[in-house]
């Protein structure tokens, strides 16, 4: 799986660099949205195939809250630590880490209310977060536990990285991941500007 991830992304980067005028590049948003939709239909089928999982979603509320709050706390703590390492303002570090992997939105928000460099760091760090997620979810699922494997994903647990979580854990964990991803996604547009301006 790790090899597939690295090869696909590398080929994609090379393709994007050398064929920037191609059909794929011009229609990239559309193409990835369609692929994502098909992929998520397949993930939904996976969840639905296990009826017993759906019946006890109430028992999962604690897991969902624990995962969501832990990701918020862990990400912001990581953001503050990075800001201290690079001698950046604390509000910048907090705002970048509150992207929770949703690079397009956090990048755009911080470019607008902050500056271009801040926006770029937010964009890149959240892209990297998504890439790292693809690579380490299988490892965390085996070495620690299934719920911990949701941690890297953050907001992306509801879409792009949900397949890798569902492939490496069980359907219980997949549902917790999806709901926590929805909650974290909803928090991004609130927390990023809030942390940047208030603190």
């Amino acid at each position: 799986m790790t090899i597939i991830v690295l090869v696909s992304v590398s080929l994609g980067i090379l393709f994007g660099m050398f064929f920037s005028g191609s059909y794929i590049v011009h229609n990239l948003d559309f193409l990835s949205q369609v692929t994502l939709a098909i992929l998520l239909l397949s993930v939904g089928l996976d969840i639905g195939s296990n009826k017993s999982t759906l019946s006890n979603i109430k028992d999962k509320i604690y897991s969902i809250l624990i995962v969501t709050l832990s990701v918020v706390f862990g990400s912001l703590f990581g953001g503050v630590t990075t800001a201290l390492i690079f001698n950046m303002q604390l509000n910048e570090g907090l705002a970048i880490s509150a992207g929770f992997g949703w690079y397009s939105l956090s990048g755009v928000i911080l470019t607008n209310i902050g500056n271009a460099e801040l926006g770029s760091i937010a964009f890149l760090s959240n892209i990297f977060r998504e890439l790292i997620t693809f690579l380490i979810v299988p490892l965390v699922a085996i070495k620690l536990n299934y719920l911990s494997a949701i941690g890297p994903a953050g907001a992306t647990a509801m879409d792009t990285t949900l397949p890798v979580i569902s492939n490496n854990t069980d359907s219980n964990t997949t549902i917790v991941a999806f709901v926590s991803g929805v909650l974290l996604t909803a928090l991004v547009p609130i927390l990023v500007p809030l942390l940047y301006t208030i603190i």
Partner: peptide
């Protein structure tokens, strides 16, 4: 999907050049 993600990075020269300038900060954050 990962291929498309790569294409979006590779086709944006600003990101490629930013990669060397602010990449270290970004990687540390992630």
């Amino acid at each position: 999907l990962l291929f498309f993600m790569g294409v979006s990075i590779g086709s944006n020269p600003e990101i490629i050049s930013n990669l060397s300038l602010i990449g270290l900060k970004a990687i540390t954050f992630s």
